[in-house]
């Protein structure tokens, strides 16, 4: 059985099953050994409303070796590297079985978004955030879903339903502090992400000592 035949078969089966919400297509041209998969962020999670793209390289000995998958869309999740999109999931490593398919793998990634395993992290810092400040983690994850995965305006549970709050209000971030960092050349979304993650929502005379340095250090990583 050739790799191409198997992939073609999988693509056909998925094409006939649009209700699965899982999509696969060649990354470029008609090379079916390099694909892009996509699925919706699971409901009732901070990823809801987002659309997640996954880069998929199919090794020569597929399906006897697992597909090589990496998130193209930035995801804030303990088992996904916030920098590289590398994924920590056993079925994509030593627990791969040739009866699994690309669709099954993408569904597993969707479940991974719904059920993080912070005790076995890919991204230690995100996992620390998840374990120490769940609300803050959810806020950041939701914010990332919005700016990177195209999720609609996030409504946090305590937000007034009639009047959407500004990003700054929603996260309790001082807009003036953000402007200062923007003046240094950092992108606004990155500044907000770092402020959310570190919990340092403002800088200046009434902020804790070293706040600016700490944020700068994070921004420069």
């Amino acid at each position: 059985m050739s790799r191409e035949r198997r992939i073609a078969k999988e693509l056909r089966a998925l094409h006939d099953d649009p209700e699965s919400g899982i999509f696969l297509q060649p990354a470029q041209g008609d090379d079916i050994t390099h694909l892009v998969g996509s699925f919706a962020g699971p409901r009732d999670t901070p990823y809801e409303g987002g659309r997640y793209l996954v880069d998929i390289k199919i090794p020569y000995d597929y399906p006897f070796k697992p597909p090589i998958m990496r998130f193209d869309t930035k995801v804030y999740h303990p088992n996904i590297s916030s920098q590289t999109g590398a994924i920590c999931l056993d079925i994509l490593k030593d627990k791969w079985s040739p009866v699994l398919t690309l669709k099954a793998s993408l569904i597993s990634l969707q479940s991974l978004l719904a059920s993080p395993e912070p005790t076995n992290p890919q991204d230690a810092e995100v996992a620390k955030h998840y374990l120490s400040d769940r609300q803050g983690f959810d806020n950041t994850a939701r914010y990332w879903a919005k700016i990177y995965a195209g999720a609609g305006v996030a409504t946090s549970t305590d937000a007034s339903p009639s009047e959407p709050k500004s990003i700054f209000e929603q996260y309790g971030i001082d807009p003036e502090s953000v402007k200062i960092f923007e003046g240094m050349g950092f992108a606004q979304d990155r500044i907000i992400e770092v402020m959310n993650r570190t919990g340092i929502k403002k800088i200046g005379s009434d902020a804790p000592a070293g706040a600016e340095d700490r944020l700068l250090e994070e921004l420069l990583k």
Binding site: N79, C88, E117, D123
Partner: peptide, 16 residues
């Protein structure tokens, strides 16, 4: 009985 996510931590630590 291993959990589904079983990776050594590498990315995004301070010395990354």
């Amino acid at each position: 009985a291993a959990t589904k996510a079983t990776c050594e931590t590498t990315a995004a630590t301070s010395d990354y």
